[in-house]
């Protein structure tokens, strides 16, 4: 078990982070080059003011018409996205591990707060799952991958919660926790989870085109 722990917390973590950051860079650069070649007008029409205007309208709940039309989903989605970033990054246990490895640390959340945020993420994932299974249009749009991705997103939070509360199999679950998070990080750039960074470009471009060329709102 030590060998597995060492492997998962060491080399595999490096692989995951390299794939994550490398993947993001690869996707952004390859798309930038492809856009230059085949969609050159993106560069022509891009307007930072209008891009940010649009991004801001879509990042906050109730700032767009569609968001106001679906208050429950808007709130769940907003909380989900905040927690999925804030909880892991500002978790004491994670910062401690990073501090041990790299001697850097930063502000962390009280464990109780992180615990609630984790539950919120898990709850949101369950909400998304139910929505995917019960809403006909979403069900139609979903393929197996959508469910797998949802499970992969939930996995680190479920295992993290499990490990923190020291339920049975805590050591194994700690390893699974690291492993699932590594898988998640590694696939983000190469699946539709890449909306994590592409969102800013798709929304930004639509905002630019609507705002600077069409003189219309896009929210």
């Amino acid at each position: 078990m030590h060998a597995i722990y060492n492997f998962v917390s060491g080399p595999l973590a490096w692989v995951a982070f390299i794939l994550f950051f490398g993947g993001i860079l690869y996707q952004l650069i390859s798309r930038a080059i492809m856009a230059k070649k085949k969609d050159a007008f993106i560069y022509e029409y891009w307007s930072f003011y209008h891009a940010f205007r649009s991004i801001l309208h879509w990042i906050f709940p109730f700032a767009s018409t569609n968001s106001r039309n679906r208050p429950v989903l808007s709130v769940v989605t907003f909380i989900f996205h905040i927690c999925i970033f804030v909880a892991p990054i500002f978790l004491f246990a994670h910062i401690t591990l990073i501090n041990e490895a790299f001697n850097v640390s930063w502000w962390f959340l009280p464990d109780g707060v992180a615990d609630i945020m984790t539950l919120l993420v898990i709850g949101a994932c369950i909400f998304f799952l139910i929505r995917r299974l019960t809403q006909p249009d979403v069900k139609f749009l979903s393929n197996a991958w959508d469910y797998v991705l949802l499970a992969l997103v939930a996995a680190p939070f479920v295992t993290g919660y499990w490990a923190y509360h020291q339920w049975p199999g805590n050591q194994l679950v700690t390893i699974l926790h690291m492993l699932s998070a590594e898988i998640l990080l590694a696939i983000i750039p190469f699946t539709k989870l890449n909306h994590m960074f592409l969102f800013f470009f798709t929304r930004g471009y639509m905002g630019s085109e609507f705002g600077a060329v069409r003189f219309a709102r896009d929210w």
């Binding site: 030590h2 722990y5 490990a163 020291q166 390893i175």
Partner: peptide, 14 residues
């Protein structure tokens, strides 16, 4: 030490 000696607890909850 536990990690390098491959002995003793390493996971948080241990």
């Amino acid at each position: 030490c536990h990690l390098s000696e491959k002995a003793g607890p390493v996971a948080c909850g241990e």
